[in-house]
Amino acid sequence: MPLGRTLLSTARHWSTASQLRARNNAMAALATLAQRRAEREDVESFLAQLQAQLPTRLPAVLPLSTLRSAGAPSDTGTEAPPSREADRADRAARSS
């Protein structure tokens, strides 16, 4: 086959081959986007269910009974740790 006919045949089939590649690329992109959309909808659904299970408003301070049931020490008979000024004053009194 002469070079002229081969070149002409390639030029004629180029548009068809190019369109097939473009169509295949579009189908692959469509499948990827559909999968991402499904995953996003699953996450949105999960977060909506999680939000529905949470209380609408959290208390500003936890009740003492909650702290005691969690194993925290009770506040009876315990003192707050000394402040820095009280600690300095105590050290100064001992050193003099």
Rank of each mutant, 00 (worst) to 15 (best):
M1Y: 00
P2W: 02
L3P: 01
L3N: 12
G4Q: 15
G4M: 05
G4D: 13
R5F: 04
T6V: 11
L7N: 12
S9T: 14
S9F: 01
S9Y: 01
S9K: 09
S9L: 15
T10Q: 12
T10D: 11
R12P: 00
R12E: 07
H13V: 09
W14T: 14
T16G: 13
A17E: 10
A17V: 08
A17K: 09
A17N: 13
L20T: 12
L20N: 11
L20K: 13
R21A: 10
R21H: 02
R21S: 09
N24Y: 04
N25A: 11
N25T: 04
A26D: 07
A28E: 10
A28Q: 12
A29I: 05
A29R: 15
L30N: 14
A31T: 04
A31N: 06
L33T: 13
L33Y: 03
A34V: 00
Q35C: 04
A38V: 04
A38C: 04
E39D: 10
R40V: 10
R40A: 13
E41K: 10
E41P: 00
V43E: 13
V43P: 03
S45T: 09
S45Y: 04
L47H: 02
Q49V: 06
L50S: 11
Q51G: 07
Q51N: 06
A52C: 04
A52N: 10
A52W: 04
L54T: 05
T56A: 13
P59D: 11
P63K: 06
T66E: 09
R68Y: 02
R68H: 03
R68D: 01
S69N: 12
S69M: 08
S69E: 10
S69V: 07
A70D: 03
G71C: 04
A72T: 06
A72M: 11
P73I: 03
S74V: 09
D75G: 12
D75F: 05
G77D: 03
G77P: 01
T78Q: 06
E79Q: 11
E79R: 12
P82A: 11
P82L: 14
D87I: 12
D90T: 13
A92W: 01
A92E: 09
S95I: 09
S95M: 06
S95F: 07
